[in-house]
Design a protein around this nucleic acid. Structure first.
Lengths: 341, 341
DNA sequence: CTGAAAGCGCTTACAG
DNA sequence: CTGAAAGCGCTTACAG
């Protein structure tokens, strides 16, 4: 009787080193060595084998290889719950840098009430070699799992609550620079717009602290803090509250660009001119910051450098079992554009 | 002699079904069946085994499983070279929908002169079960590789040059609706802004064709075509050329939002009021389209629906060896906002 | 309901 | 320089 899929036919099996070995009349181990360019193989054998392999369209099964070498070289990116496009933009950069190392990227995006721990179990299941965590924090439980599963991690843009490698910007200094800039412009009534509730990130508080320090150094009052969701809509809502305040601010530092756009649009709707009436500064330097509708003065997070550092650290953890955790601070640069004087 | 990494100690091996089998005094096959909830196992044995597995922090090695089942359940997303954030936004949606199926997502972003074929070999190496291709076209060679490697694919937002599954919007009808809208507003001097050179996508031409059809039906001249890179800067450059033209246009349809923002900013810089002097319509409905600085009338591509359809098709290809290629057309909706009257 | 055996496609000591 | 054998961590007919 014909089987059910006799029409198309069961997919032809992909060629294996065993099949090549038979054709080349050598042992599978010899094929393996030839394929992997081991120096022990004679030039002639290697050529014969690779020619046969190419002719058959052989592609090594790295999953089988990974099973024996205990190393998949897969890097996972865990993305926390965020609506900040900054983290989405990191993806192509990570992907490109990993591609040069021949390491594939797996994406795990947390949603709703997911706990990092659950995501980590999935990583372990898939035997990923290393893990980047962005826009999420590392709970002690999660850190414990990583070390139990022996998955090295590096936190991006977030300090671990626990001993772990990380790469961050010099948030505090950058915040201070922003304060200094506003002061130089003659701004005296400063406000800071950050996240709300317990969603406030460490970077957020650092930026605020630096900003406050500059204010203090200039003899100004501590900048008043406004809180909103880290999103355009969050910024819009904050703008309303800024406007409702008795005090009128003339210098506003917003924790990230995505909120800053909302703040700007909210203020403009009310007829406020930027930067004439008020200066606004963001953080991240999203592509939209250059758009002439905003032309936002902001602090650039050097994505390429950040990713480069993160992967260097990961490389080290992958090659040295006991490489110590390291924290790298990357310099963020203040970019002056049209929302300041 | 102590080994090199005696300090930290070689990472403890992760527990395997073999270790669990020994502790539970059963065969590894029994552990496997218990872990996989096979009905044949007795309730008592299963409980004993799972308790031991949990206590040891056992996590199944899906790579080993994949080796024998010949199925990793990994889905790859190949992203073509594009600066349109629309495709980046698709990532979290795909990731979320795959997560509910327990399928991990691997990202492969093409860069520069990469050929889809090279990327496909990498997919095959990693034994991905299926593949989504967005913002890149499927060359006949690539299609041949997919069928040789037995990797089902579905094209997103791009028709295959070759028999393959795909999901697209009704680009032509949407373009026609845009034309009709502009006509109803009394616009008579229409322009279309699309991609340049041989980078023009099929969707682009479809949108233009629909737009032209509406113009014709209304007795208007064929919309003049302007070409730019699919990016904000591309739109900005087009705006200059629009302004340099003798003819003044009063209705402009731009192939995608990211260019539309550039066109708008370019026109505004020249003092042109939108929509008073000219109506502008985009395509995609990026988040920025709602921002009050733009408030862009545009055609919404329903990302969630698109991804849902794409994964349904992929599911079918994964369960039925010989499932026929299918092309789904999803309805895109015209969203009227402030850049039209 | 459970076990023993074979095997998925590779790599890697160990011999020679 | 090459081969035979064992094994990575699982699953799956086949027996019983």
């Amino acid at each position: 009787l014909p089987t059910k899929d006799s029409g198309n036919g069961a997919a032809r099996r992909r060629p294996t080193i065993k099949m090549i070995a038979k054709l080349a009349k050598v042992a599978p181990s010899t094929v393996s060595r030839a394929i992997n360019d081991e120096p022990s193989i004679s030039e002639e054998t290697r050529r014969r084998i690779t020619r046969i392999a190419d002719r058959m369209g052989f592609v090594p099964n790295v999953i089988a290889r990974g099973l024996v070498t205990r190393r998949t070289n897969i890097v996972a990116l865990i993305l926390g719950v965020t609506r900040n496009p900054f983290y989405l933009e990191m993806i192509p950069v990570i992907s490109a840098q990993l591609a040069t190392r021949g390491m594939p990227l797996m994406i795990f995006r947390m949603s709703g009430q997911d706990r990092v721990e659950d995501t980590l179990a999935t990583l372990a299941r898939h035997q990923v070699s290393g893990c980047l965590i962005a826009a999420a924090s590392l709970t002690p439980e999660a850190a414990a799992m990583c070390s139990r599963f022996n998955i090295p991690i590096v936190m991006i843009n977030r300090l671990a609550e626990v001993q772990a490698s990380s790469v961050n910007c010099n948030n505090r200094e950058a915040g201070e620079q922003v304060g200094t800039l506003l002061r130089q412009e003659g701004r005296t009534r400063l406000a800071y717009v950050g996240g709300e509730g317990n969603a406030v990130t460490f970077q957020d508080s650092e930026r605020e602290a630096g900003f406050a320090r500059a204010a203090k150094a200039a003899g100004l009052a501590v900048p008043q803090r406004f809180a909103g969701a880290y999103s355009y809509e969050g910024g819009l809502a904050v703008a309303e509250r800024l406007l409702a305040t008795q005090r009128s601010f003339d210098g506003i530092f917003v924790a990230n660009d995505i909120m800053a756009f909302g703040v700007i649009d909210g203020l403009r709707r009310a007829g406020i001119a930027i930067p004439r009436d008020v200066s606004v500064v963001g953080f991240d330097d999203l592509p939209e910051a250059r758009w002439s509708a905003y032309d936002l003065t902001t602090v650039r997070q050097p994505i390429v450098t950040i990713v480069d550092r993160a992967l260097s650290i990961l490389d080290r953890h992958l090659s040295e079992e006991a490489a110590p955790a390291e924290s790298v601070i990357v310099r963020a640069e203040l970019i002056r554009r049209g929302t300041t004087l």
